[in-house]
Design a protein around this nucleic acid. Structure first.
Lengths: 133, 133
DNA sequence: TACGATTTGAAAACAAATTTCAATTTCAAT
DNA sequence: ATTGAAATTGAAATTTGTTTTCAAATCGTA
């Protein structure tokens, strides 16, 4: 099991969360984060990036979406998005900022007895460019 | 790439879809299906179960949900449901039959440019009994 | 039945994520 | 500043889930 808390601040951990924070609306894969950091000169291991992103997700400071290919993607939690979209064609993830998300989940809760957790839910479909229009 | 069409009927393929049809409300992992079939006496390979479930999902006769754990789960496509609910606590799956699903996805398409595919989307959250009330 | 096309399945290949563990780093207490 | 216990790192190994390979078996049509 991955550790859920980290008590010491480290350069590597800071670099990861800083990089996520720089891209508030992108869902990034572990390797994207890792290779960007390495390209930028910080020497950090892949496993450290895995660990940091996972711990951010479990403490709520990052959102995690599992893309169709199977790899996890993360985005910083501070943005205002209410939902998560993943394109089945290109695999890219998008943040959805829409008042209807809350209306819809409220309705499902009151009328169907199920409390949707939007942070854990990924809406799959086709993004604008993959729809061919 | 997995084949998306199958032209010949085979015992193994029939066994897989028959087993899924026997459990209309369960999301089953590949290994659950495979070991149940083997336990029941039919000699079938794991790869065949993978292939058949994947082809059922892509032709629409099964629904695929990638669970938080990371492994894919499949359930037979049910006729009237407009959405799929999976409880994060107990793991059970529920069919959601709700007019707002269509309203919501229409809105996301027209206002946000993303066509949600409800058959491929699983809404995660807490079911009535796991909410403890 | 005979034939070409499809499917099977065991094993190998693959890919993403996790774990291992010795070396390093952090931070609080001197 | 120095110490040392606890936490973190990272390269490599391992695990886990899935896909591919390819020869053999099976399917369905002629």
């Amino acid at each position: 099991m991955a550790e859920t808390q980290r008590k010491y601040k480290t350069k590597q951990g800071e670099a990861v969360s800083a990089y996520l924070a720089e891209r508030p609306d992108s869902y990034l894969s572990v390797d994207e984060v890792w290779s960007a950091l390495v390209a930028a000169g910080s020497r950090v291991g892949r496993s450290t990036v895995y660990r940091k992103l996972e711990s951010m997700a479990s403490e709520g400071s990052a959102l995690k979406a599992t893309a169709p290919g199977g790899e996890a993607r993360y985005r910083i939690a501070s943005s205002s998005a209410t939902g998560q979209l993943v394109c089945l064609a290109c695999g890219r993830a998008f943040a959805l900022d829409c008042h209807m998300v809350e209306e819809f989940s409220d309705h499902v809760l009151s009328h169907h007895g199920f409390r949707i957790d939007p942070a854990r839910t990924v809406l799959y479909g086709l993004c604008e460019s993959c729809r061919g229009v």
